[in-house]
Structures are given as C-alpha cells and as structure tokens.
Design a protein around this nucleic acid. Structure first.
Length: 950
RNA sequence: GCGAGGGUGGCCGAGCCUGGCCAAAGGCGGCGGACUUAAGAUCCGCUCCCGCAGGGGUUCGUGGGUUCAAAUCCCUCCCCUCGCACCA
C-alpha cells in the first residue's frame, strides 16, 4: 500500500468526528485537563500558530494512551479593539489591511463583504475561511472537544466574566482611580495603539515638576520645570525658556503657574483646573530669577531656542554638571554672553554661572558632564555624539552615581535606589509636583494631536502585597516547564503594578456596574479555563438565570449562597471533575502578562487545590529564518502545508525540530525531508505488516533479535520520560530517528528471512506506532490498525524481562570488531580473503577480573596481580595490560563491566562469523591466543581481539 | 543595568544538568557507489588533519582554574537574542 497521507488522514478525521472520539465527559479514569490560549481571530491561522495548538495535542494524546480521561477544549478570543479596528480599516478600504487579508490569508473579493461586521469578521476567521482556525485545527487532527467552543463575546461568557469582576471588586482587588490614557485632542476621546498614525511605541513618562518660585508683574507665581531626574534639583544653575515661546500665567487648581501656553491644555487633560490669566512672550521673562524650592537659591532664566514649548511645561531647568546637553548649552551661552544684553542680561552674571555637581560617579571627575563632553570631543550642541554621551552619562549616574552630603539621609545612596523615595519626600513638602508626557510625538489616524489624559478608570491591584504573596505561592507549587521560567514569573510578580482593566470601546463584556466600559482582553481571559468545563452544558440554561449567585454556587459550592440553583450545583460536579488545569501551554512572551495574570486570578478566586498545576512555555516560529509577518505576506498557511505534505508531516516537523519552548524555523526543504522520512517509515512498515506473524506466535529468537528487543525497552523508557516533561523533540527523536539507527544495524546483522526476525520486527513496529501516535496520529493509527486490527489505544510499557545488558554488550563487541576491521581495511587498502580473530589469552582475562575487583588503580592492581607467580613471570607485559585495562574499566559503568565479565568472547565472535564473512567477503577464523603463534597474537586484549588480515 | 537564553565541525543542530565508551548524534550540503535509458526518489559508504594495521595530532566564543581526565564543572572577558528597566 502506497503512502497517501491525504486519503488516510481524511478517513481518520471523519472517523474521529463521527464517533465523537475526543468529546470528553467525566468518568472514572483520572482527569487530565489541558489548555492553550484561545486564538484571537483578527486574521487567519498560519503555520506559526499550528505548533502552539499541536504541542498540547501531543500531550493530550499521550495522556489518553496512558489511560487518562483527557479534556482539550478551545474557544475564541474576540475581546477588545483589534477585530473592531480591522473591520473599520477594511470598511475604509485601507490598502495594507486589504493586502494582508488577500495576500496572506487568501480572502477573495466576494468574501470581503462578509467581513464588515466585527463578529462576521471573527466568524470568518474562526471557521469559514480556508485559512480559518477551525479548518486548520481540524486539518491538523487536534483532539479537541468541539462541543465546548464559545467566543468571549457570547452572552453567557459575559455573565461569567461579570461574576468574576463583581467578585474581584467585593474582594478589593479592583479599584477606581485616575490613570493616564492616550487621548486624541481632535476627536476628543481616548484612543488605542491601533488608532495611531505615529508614536505607537510612545510610553507614558512621569515627569517631576520642580516648583520654582517666580515673580511676574509683582506677583509670586510657581514656575514648574519638568525633569525626569528629580534628584538633580540641587544642581540647578539656571533655567531656560524659549525666547519666542508663548507663555502664560494661569491659575492651576487655584494657584498661579507660569507655563507655556501649550502646557495648559496638557494640564487640563490631566484633570487640572486651568484658567489662563495673562500671556507673555518668553523673552519677557529672560533675565528674571527663579527660586529653587529645595535650596532657596535664586537662579537666572536664560533664553534657549532648543526649549520645546510643546513638551511638558515648556520651562526647563539646567543642570550643567550632570547633563552634557545643559553643559554644552551653557558653554555656548557664555561664549556669546555679550550678545545677551539685548535681553537685559548682564554678561558677567552669565559668565559667572558654574556647574554645581551633586553626585559622584566612578570614571568621571568632579563635573561629569564636562568630562563626558570633553572626552568625546564634542564641540557644539549640534554634534550628534552629544546624544550618546548624554545617554551614557545618565545610565552611569542612575546605576552608580552616589549623592553628596547635602542630600542628608540620601547622601551616599545610589540614584537607582532612592529616586522614587526622594521624589515622594519633596512632593510631600510641596517642592515637587508631577505631570505626564509622552516619550515621543503621538499622532492619531485622524491627524489629531494625541496627548496624555487622566481618566477615571478601574484597575486590578496587582501591586497589593498580599495578592503578590499568594500568587508567589501559586508559582512555587507550579510545575514550570522549562524549570528556568519559574524565576520569570516571580520576577514579573515583583515588578507588576496596577493594571487598568477596562477600555472605552471594543468587543467583550461590559463592566457590570458601569456599562460605559469594556473589560479588556488580558483581563477577561484569566480564569476562563474553568468556563470550558461547563460551556457546552450552559447553553441549556437561560442567560438571565446566570446571575451572580448562580456562579457563586457553581464555583464556591452550596454553602456560598442562600438558595443554590440545582443546575449550578450539577455543573459544579463537572467543574470539580476537570479542575484544576493540569497544563497550560502558552507562548513565552505571555509570561510577563497573561500567564502571570492567570496565576494571580486563580490564586485569588480559587482554593489552592484548584490552582494551575503546570505551565509549559512555547517558543516562537520563524519562516525560512525570518520572522513571520501576515502584513508582509511572509506566512505559510496550515492548509497549504497540509495539502502539500499531509498533516502528519506538518505535525512531525513542528514537534521534532525543536522542543516546545525553543524557537523553531519552518524551512521548506526540511519539511520536505521530514515527509520523505515518514514515507520511508510507511513503506518499511508495510513490509513488516505483510510478513507479520501473530503477536503471540511461538517463534525462536536469536541473540540479535533479543538485542533489538532490549534496545526497544530503552527506547520506550526514554520516550516516556521525555513526554512526561513535554520534551516532544527528544521523545519523537528517540522513538523515530533514534530507533531507526538500531534497525539499520539489525537489518544488516540479522537474517531477516527467519520467522523470529519477522516477529521481532512486528513487535518493535507495534510499540513504535503506539509511541508515535501522539505525534503522527493519522499514520500511526492507520498502520497500527493494519497490523493489529485496532487503532493505537495504549502506551507501551517497558518489559524488564526483555532488557539485557549482556546481550547488548555482546552485540557491541561485534560492532567494535566490524569497526576495527573496517579501519584496517581503509588504512591499508587491502581486500582480505581471511580474517583471523585472535581472542585474548585466559591470563589476560584474569588480569581484567583483578582490575574490576580492585578498581581503576594501577598500583593497587599491580600489588595484587604480582602475587600470582604465573603473572609475575610476565612482568612488563602485565604492567602494560594493567595500564590499558585500568583505563578501560574507568570508562565503563558497573552494569556494563558486569555484563562483559560474563561473556565468552570466542563464542560471541564464532556466533557472528557468518555475518562477518558476508560483510567482508572473507572467511573468518576465530582462535584463542594460546592456540596460535601468529606474531600479532600478543596484541589481543580482553574485549579487543587481535586482528590479522590475509 | 537587571532577568532569561545562547555562542559546537561547510551549514542547521544534539551533547553540557549527572566529567571519561565524544572527533562529538541526527539532518542538510558535498563526494563515491548501487538501482535506472536518464533525471528524481530510494539504498549503501565516505565527509577535521596525518597515517599501507585498528594509531597519532588539533578542535566545541576568549583567557585562566579544578581534575588522573573537561565541549561538559568553577572564575574572567567578549559577542548574540529576548523580556524588563532606564532614557532633558
């Protein structure tokens, strides 16, 4: 039978679907519940996604073969704005969006109209498109229980999320507060990253405002100067304004402030009450002085065109000792001090300004900024190297700089450790304030300017110490695969802060007590695994019955509510059956958000016994060595790959080319060769199946058969061990390629015409098919059925009876002999007619036994050996042999040595004589060293016969 | 800067935890052979250097160290990737 993957795969797919093979219901067997993040159908499925879902499938199939009741469900994540945004861009006819859909996912012109509603779009990529997730998953043969699918926009799911968020609020894990958001000043509403034309990478920066005192027109006002380095406040030597800039005095929260006009809008958006009173041009203020709120010093305001009035407050303080920028700016101003008289400045006063160092940092002198500028040879403020010098110095000062005495309790401390605290202290004293600003310019797709706005929002208090503590406990009892990810969870918990969990629009569940807001995607996907356990049965219950008490009864039991709903308690049984999640398989980049949130919410909402038991991390996929990119059309679709190679090839390649947590690279030439390997396997299997005697046939086995069976047991052990730890690569390599090597030797070595050989090969094939069934389920089940009449239903167990160190050691001797003869033939270029194998003399065996007994210590062994007169006579010869054998023994473990010492070498070689004769086309003569006077005979050592070619 | 991972033969990639059977699996590529009218596929062998007897030499980012013995353990440094932080 030819290998026709598509026909085979179609047959099995249909069969599994018809018989509901993977629909899992509670039963007596041990429950295993395995999940993977539900896909986000904002586009089609590509080959990069394929492995994500195949890894858990392999584990699920493995556990089933081990006898477990396994649940592997899937659902669809549609929450948030990506789908809505995609639909909008499609409606507007944006070309890059159209290209992605058409080029990467093969959407036809006629289908586009179906994608014009968010859920229509989602449905299309969930199950309608050729590139849809469901099509891909079914094609790959994933053993999913399809009855349980849902979307996160479903009414019932929303009821569940509402329950979750009400519960979190009741437990004080949800708080309301002001939070910075991106806000389009044109559309006058918050925007998301997807709405941006420029500045997608922009971050919110929290500027410290140093509240300098200024007198304008006889009035005392506050001149807030923005800085990211509040600790430099004592090093301020002057301030800068843009001489042509538009400035105002405005009442900000009832207090007069001097800021740029642009800043007033920013402050307003940040929930400040702002009323402009009077306008000024920057040059009107040049020459005035401002009072440092920390030192009380009066410093000059100087003019500078580099000041950006559209950034923060538009008033800048200057710290020339620690900022190369400021240092250069001051130097240049001093050089042209005489010109500054036009601003009414006294040139002498400008020239008198000197940098004031406030910290020391290794590698720089008294004035670090000066050193940085001078050592880089920077001449002017236009020098591009100034940026690097600034960056370098900031980093050094932040991580290593130690504050001077004036800083009191902070003196001697490193900036990194005290910046926050110092800022807070000065804030409390009224010297500092703060405002937000973006790290770069941000522009909305509508062309409007985007600013930071403060908005009332709800956030999850991931920074609560007790919540952090309990989540860390969840990490401790977690099986983290690979183990080195454990630290990353802990690390994430350490730095995680409050998380704003709602958005203004998008798909998903509305906040139950404020339906203006939608719960965002990373926040509505933290405990939904529990929803899988009941999803298919929830459909029978009217949505309006799914109230808070219903879920309380379901998840917290009958005692949790006054009048528990019987249907909820019934569902509770199923939840308890499957929960907790045994393994969640997810991408490594989700450790820092989704996976840690998943742990947080489980730790808070559920009993410890329901906490996740394991997380397996998965690496990224590359395509021909490069990142996949839907927008560039640099993707391979599972459907295409399956059409071309068959699903088994796709699966096997994905699982065999790297361990799940490693990155892998889809390369067509390798996939091709994987396909060839599978076909070769199929063809060989066909031969074995045709010749196969019954499993219980009474056959005579030769040592070489027993050798192969012994190797099989080792293979089973190693494969099992690997799969237990999700090492899909090791497992499939061992069961497939690793064993193929043994078979190659076996085919060469054994007489395959014997029934014993046929039986051995069928036994081996059967076990391998069962081990390969998780990886290549179509092929393995098909062949298994051809061989035995049933699909592969159980995992093979190693049979200790069939393992034999002695048999393996015997075979190893033959292999070594073949290698040695080959070596000699190669080097000498001869073609021998006779190969004489001379087995070491008995006295040499005696020495070997002595070494084994005494241990690998030349002196000690010699001491023992020399007590025997027969050996003492041989003096030097014995000494040399002991040296060799000590090495030999040292390099081998006890089992091998023990096996070797039981072996009769002559018997081994004589037994293999027929094979050797065939292999070398020569006659074989096995003799004992004692019985020959060949000059090479003396070279014979135990387990290393002398070889003579004639 | 912090955290994680990594640097192996022409290439990809195992090995490293648990030191010795490691000149280092497997694949790709290359070379030779078998089969074929031929190509492809398949199968067999070779593929660091030297060697007409199973041997020797030099290799696993750098430089040290531990050990009878190091790709493997320890330390130093260099480089790469990712995440985080930092970034008038």
């Amino acid at each position: 039978m030819e290998y026709e993957p598509h026909a085979v795969e179609r047959r099995w797919r249909e069969r599994w679907a018809e018989t509901g093979r993977y629909e899992a219901d509670p039963g007596d067997e041990e429950a295993t519940f395995i999940t993977v993040p539900y896909p986000y159908p904002s586009g089609g499925m590509h080959i990069g996604h394929a492995r994500t879902y195949t890894v858990p499938d392999v584990y699920a199939r493995y556990r089933r073969l081990q006898g477990d009741n396994v649940l592997f469900p899937i659902a669809w994540h549609v929450t948030g704005t990506p789908i809505v945004g995609a639909v909008e861009r499609l409606r507007k006819g944006e070309s890059d969006q159209l290209e992605t859909l058409q080029n990467a996912f093969g959407v036809s012109e006629s289908e586009l109209k179906n994608l014009e509603t968010p859920m229509g779009y989602a449905r299309y990529f969930i199950e309608e498109a050729d590139s849809s997730y469901k099509t891909g998953m079914k094609g790959l043969g994933l053993s999913i229980d399809w009855r349980r699918e849902f979307t996160t926009n479903d009414d019932r799911y929303s009821k569940f999320i509402e329950w979750q968020y009400r519960t979190l609020r009741d437990r004080d894990r949800l708080e309301k507060g002001l939070h910075p958001v991106k806000y389009c000043t044109n559309e006058r509403q918050p925007v998301t990253t997807h709405d941006l034309l420029e500045g997608e990478e922009a971050e919110f920066q929290e500027y410290t405002l140093v509240r300098f005192g200024l007198t304008v027109d006889g009035e005392s006002v506050t001149a807030p100067m923005a800085t990211l380095r509040p600790e430099t406040v004592r090093g301020v030597t002057n301030a800068y304004v843009h001489p042509d800039g538009e400035y105002v005095v405005a009442d900000v929260d009832g207090e007069p402030w001097f800021v740029s006009e642009a800043a007033t809008e920013k402050l307003r958006l940040q929930e400040r009450d702002v009323e402009i009173r009077k306008r000024y041009s920057g040059d009107e203020l040049v020459g005035s002085t401002v009072e440092n709120p920390v030192t009380g010093d009066e410093v000059l305001i100087l003019p500078a065109t580099f000041v950006d009035t559209d950034n923060a407050t538009g008033v800048v303080m200057s710290v020339p000792a620690h900022s190369p920028d400021d240092y250069v700016a001051l130097r240049e101003l001093k050089e042209r001090a005489d010109e500054l008289t036009e601003y009414g400045l006294d040139p002498a006063a400008v020239r008198a300004i000197e940098p004031i160092p406030i910290l020391s940092v290794d590698g720089y002198g008294e004035i670090p900024a000066r050193d940085a500028v001078e050592s880089a040879g920077i001449e002017s403020s236009d020098d591009p190297r100034l940026k690097d010098a600034t960056q370098e110095l900031y980093n050094r000062e932040f991580h290593q700089g130690e504050l001077f005495e004036e800083y009191g309790e902070f003196a001697g401390a490193v900036i990194e450790d005290v910046r926050e605290e110092l800022r807070e202290q000065f804030r409390e004293r009224g010297a500092f304030d703060l405002m937000y600003e973006f790290s770069e310019e941000v522009v909305c797709r509508c062309g409007g300017d985007v600013e930071v706005a403060y908005q009332d929002t709800w956030f999850l208090t991931y920074n609560d110490d007790d919540w952090k503590a309990i989540t860390k406990r969840a990490v401790e009892q977690l099986e983290a695969i690979p183990e080195n990810t454990r630290e990353q969870y802990t690390h994430t918990i350490d730095w995680l802060n409050e998380w704003p969990c709602i958005r203004n629009y998008g798909l998903g569940t509305r906040l139950p007590w404020d339906d203006e807001f939608v719960i965002e995607p990373l926040s509505d996907s933290t405990i939904y695994m529990s929803y899988y356990t009941i999803a298919h049965r929830l459909d029978e219950i009217p949505v309006e019955d799914l109230d808070h008490e219903f879920f309380d009864a379901l998840f917290y039991g009958p005692e949790a509510v006054d009048d528990p709903d019987a249907r909820a308690l019934d569902l509770r049984e199923e939840w308890l059956h499957w929960y907790p999640v045994d393994f969640r398989c997810s991408a490594n980049d989700l450790i820092s958000n989704h996976l840690t949130f998943f742990l947080y919410h489980h730790a808070e909402l559920f009993e410890e016994s329901q906490w996740p038991e394991g997380i397996t991390i998965m690496g990224m996929g590359l395509l021909e060595g490069e990142k996949m990119s839907s927008s560039k059309g640099h993707v391979v679709l599972p459907g295409e790959a399956i059409d071309r190679y068959g699903a088994d090839t796709v699966r096997f390649f994905l699982l065999n080319s790297a361990e799940p947590w490693q990155d892998y690279d889809w390369r067509a030439d390798r996939v091709e060769s994987t396909h060839n390997q599978l076909r070769r396997f199929w063809n060989r299997a066909q031969e074995v199946i045709e010749a196969a005697p019954a499993a219980d046939a009474d056959v005579e086995l030769r040592p070489v058969d027993r050798w192969l069976l012994s190797k099989l047991q080792t293979t089973i052990r190693r494969t099992t061990e690997a799969l237990e730890g999700f090492e899909t690569r090791t497992a499939s390599q061992t069961a497939f390629y690793g064993f193929e090597e043994q078979l190659r030797w076996y085919r060469r070595r054994a007489d395959l015409e014997r029934e014993g050989a046929a039986w051995t090969l069928r036994t081996v094939l059967e076990a391998r098919l069962r081990m390969l069934a998780p990886f290549v389920p179509f092929m393995a089940n098909e062949l298994h059925e051809q061989l035995t009449g049933t699909p592969a239903e159980t995992w093979p167990a190693p049979d200790a009876e069939l393992e034999s160190d002695r048999i393996e050691a015997r075979e190893a001797l033959i292999r070594e002999l073949v290698d040695d003869v080959n070596d000699i033939v190669d080097v000498t270029g001869t073609d021998p007619e006779l190969i004489r194998v001379i087995v070491a003399a008995d006295w040499k065996r005696t020495v070997f036994q002595q070494v084994r007994e005494t241990g690998p210590d030349v002196g000690a062994v010699m001491g023992q050996v020399m007590q025997r007169p027969s050996l003492r006579e041989r003096g030097d010869e014995v000494n040399r042999l002991v040296q060799t054998l000590v090495e030999f023994v040292r390099e081998r473990d006890d089992e091998t040595l023990s096996a070797l010492s039981d072996i009769d070498e002559r018997d081994v070689y004589e037994d293999a004589a027929g094979f050797l004769a065939d292999a070398f086309g020569a006659s074989i003569d096995v003799v004992a060293e004692e019985n020959t006077d060949d000059e090479k005979a003396g070279q014979a050592e135990p387990f290393r016969p002398a070889i003579v070619l004639e």
